[in-house]
């Protein structure tokens, strides 16, 4: 089971928070803070797993995270999930975001918080992995946004506005979330027999 999914930026500002196990509000904020504290002090060349935060349940729980440009994606899972499997699930989630938002960046997550939640709902449902196939997820999300188009007159405007903003010529446009390391290469390994 996945217990919580946290996305925050390099300064610890929450961008997407989804708990699948109930924690009181102040506890949630503490978990976010502590997780950020744990994750942010780790270099990029250490492993992506963290064990046994005392906040969420102790030894049975693991934090599995990935760091993309300005954002940390942290999944808190119990021992019934495979570590590397979740690591790739994060990748799938981010790639899906990238596809749905066309070059996703932190701004998309801020302004389309609801949409990000809908996408997440198609990947993880109530703490259980629902779908790992990116095309399938995108298909479901598109089905829903078709609805939006048919219904949304005014509500379509903000999206247009933001995409216009994104294409403006800002001197320091936020970098796109880097999803370059899709292929984890292990150069010094001979292929398995």
């Amino acid at each position: 089971m996945i217990k919580a999914i946290l996305v925050f930026n390099n300064h610890g500002k929450p961008r997407l928070i989804r708990f699948y196990q109930y924690f009181p509000e102040d506890m949630q904020q503490q978990i976010i803070r502590e997780t950020f504290h744990l994750v942010s002090k780790r270099d990029d060349n250490v492993c992506n797993f963290l064990e046994g935060g005392s906040l969420i349940g102790g030894s049975d729980y693991k934090l599995i995270y990935r760091h993309y440009a300005t954002l940390y994606f942290v999944f808190c899972v119990d021992s019934s999930e495979s570590e590397l499997g979740i690591l790739d699930l994060i990748q799938v989630f981010v790639e899906t975001l990238d596809k749905c938002f066309e070059n996703v960046c932190e701004l998309d997550l801020i302004f389309h918080m609801d949409k990000v939640h809908y996408i997440l709902q198609e990947v993880v449902m109530g703490g259980m992995v629902l779908e790992t196939n990116m095309n399938e997820i995108v298909g479901q999300v598109e089905n829903q946004s078709r609805l939006e188009k048919s219904e949304g007159g005014l509500s379509g405007a903000p999206a247009r506005a933001v995409s216009a903003v994104k294409n403006m010529n800002l001197p320091e446009i936020p970098r796109n979330i880097n999803i370059g390391d899709i292929n984890i290469k292990v150069p010094n390994l001979s292929p398995f027999v």
Binding site: N9, N10, H11, T70, E106, L107, I110, L154, A157, P158, A161, A164, V165, M168, L170, E172, I173, P174
Partner: peptide, 19 residues
């Protein structure tokens, strides 16, 4: 990061005024 957002947002009202 925050100043980027800020710039973006100052630009927003003008865009939105269309709508």
């Amino acid at each position: 990061m925050s100043d980027v957002v800020e710039k973006t947002l100052t630009a927003l009202p003008s865009l939105l005024s269309l709508d």
